[in-house]
Amino acid sequence: MLRLDSLSCGYGAMQAVHGLDLHVAKGSITTLLGANGAGKSSTIMCIAGHVAVHSGEIRYKDRKITDASPMQRIKDGISVVPEGRRLFPNLTVKENLIVGGYSRSRDESNRELERMLSIFPRLEERLGQRAGSLSGGEQQMLAIGRALMSKPELLLVDELSLGLMPKIIDICYRAIAELNKDGLTIILVEQSTHRALEVADQVCVLESGRTVWQGTSDEAQNNVKMIDSLLGLREETSDA
């Protein structure tokens, strides 16, 4: 579904990702792992069209989208849950969801709104509340809901569990698993490695903007050398 070929991207002269190759199959969950500054978020935002491509190519559904605008990409079915959620804090929950479905017709958007509220019923109680006043967990649910409002085929999720209580993380991961079961392709950036490995089909480990390992989730769990390269994974898996 998505191919990154020798992708290098960054901010101005600063290059954050160096020659990344990644193939994402339709209906799969791919997780990008790595420490802070590894280039995970830059990769996600580059796929969404917000970080400039320096060289290489992005192909989506066999079409080159390297130079496509973020607006074009969401119309093509790529949606993003960015790091820090980046909700519209002065807009209500309902307005945030309406913005999420802006690329669709009003009728489609209304239908998706109903579906979203069935996935995250807690948002229904907060529809008229300003997004900036929600708890961290509710904000994350809203960020996912907002991204899903455009009926994406590829969902990019950056730091799903960051700063959330374990109970809320469970809800978010359950939602991710269910959406994937319905056929949604997902690229997940995480620092909470063992949670990501539980749902992922494919794993890509980044370090300083370069790929240091790629394989299946099972291979990742069993590859000691890679595990050692991931900060804290040994402790997390043994705790689990």
């Binding site: 973020p70 607006m71 969401i74 993003v80 980046r86 519209f88 002065n90 307005e95 690329s103």
Partner: peptide, 23 residues
Amino acid sequence: TRIGVAWKATVDDPQMAASFGID
């Protein structure tokens, strides 16, 4: 209206607004 909501979203965060298809 949808255009009003789009305007407010652009005021809040133009980059994110664009990523949801608002020009």
